[in-house]
Nucleic acid binder design. Structure first.
Length: 282
DNA sequence: ACCTACCTGTTT
DNA sequence: AAACAGGTAGGT
């Protein structure tokens, strides 16, 4: 489900409500999803900020006379992170519930982690900055949007993966952080590149088109609050609207919205890949 | 550079 | 009944 635009939309939707609130209670229904050795580590802490790195959400938890702790969330395919009013009944596939209170707000609220397929995970990181946390964030490539990735940066990042197809390279989180199957296909369409093109055969002009397409597609997707195909919603349970703008993903057999040629589909890098054989002909 | 596993639900 | 789904870790 969530790629960079969806995770960023969730971050922005939660930000104004959740920052400054205090953790009053935590209920873990699935210890495999969140192995929290001792709830006392985060009890009473305040959510001071929310950051995003690639597809990870990072909650900065401060406490009096205590070193800050990071709560790290990855939603994988079907994870949801939403706010619910205090009295909301517990829904199916709820794995973690965090009750948040605020001196300014009379009613507590729940921050809920739901995940049908249970691939999503939560972790705690104490002491070390999450950027160097070896188990996840340390291996991530650069953020594609701040600043917008350049052709030079892309060339450097791709240099270690010359044997991959350009689609496989875009999906590799150590090349650029945050791109998944939907946006890889959409970016390659916007760049006019065939997905099975080997990285080794990319020209300078190809790299320039690719570098321009990455921020263009991701920024537009964020503006439209992400892509809702089935499960994805933001922190207020609102769907995204970028699905109406998809040019190739999920459109196999349909006419290309630019040239009218039939959109094709095949497995590449283990993932279904859709492209226009005319607009993306080298 | 590929394959499978991890899960549950939906579509073919 | 089988294939497939936004992701990634781990094995070969």
């Amino acid at each position: 489900m969530p790629e960079l635009p969806e995770v960023e939309t969730i971050r922005r939707s939660l930000l104004p409500v959740v920052t400054g609130r205090d953790i009053n209670r935590i209920v873990i229904d699935s210890p495999t999803v969140f192995a929290l050795p001792d709830p006392a580590i985060i009890m009473g802490r305040r959510i001071a900020a929310i950051r995003r790195r690639g597809k990870y959400l990072l909650f900065w938890l401060t406490g009096q006379a205590a070193a800050p702790v990071w709560l790290i969330v990855h939603l994988r395919m079907t994870g949801r992170l939403t706010l619910q009013p205090e009295a909301t009944p517990v829904k199916k596939h709820t794995h973690v519930r965090i009750e948040l209170t605020s001196p300014a707000a009379p009613e507590p609220a729940w921050l809920i982690f739901q995940d049908t397929r249970r691939f999503g995970r939560l972790w705690l990181q104490q002491g070390v900055s999450p950027d160097v946390w070896p188990e996840c964030l340390a291996g991530l490539g650069p953020e594609p949007l701040d600043p917008p990735v350049s052709a030079d940066c892309l060339a450097v990042q791709l240099a270690r993966h010359r044997g991959l197809s350009v689609k496989a390279a875009l999906l590799n989180q150590s090349v650029i952080a945050g791109i998944g199957n939907i946006y890889a296909d959409e970016i390659l369409f916007a760049a006019g590149l065939p997905p099975d093109l080997p990285v080794a055969s990319l020209t300078g002009a190809n790299l320039a088109h690719l570098a321009a397409a990455i921020p263009a597609v991701l920024t537009r997707a964020i503006e439209l609050c992400g892509t809702t195909l089935r499960d994805y919603v933001d922190g207020w349970s609102q769907k995204g609207r970028f699905q109406a703008c998809l040019m190739v993903y999920g459109r196999s057999g349909l006419p290309c919205r630019v040239c009218g040629h039939e959109i094709r589909k095949k497995k590449l890098a283990g993932r279904t890949t859709c492209w226009c054989p005319v607009c993306q002909l080298l």
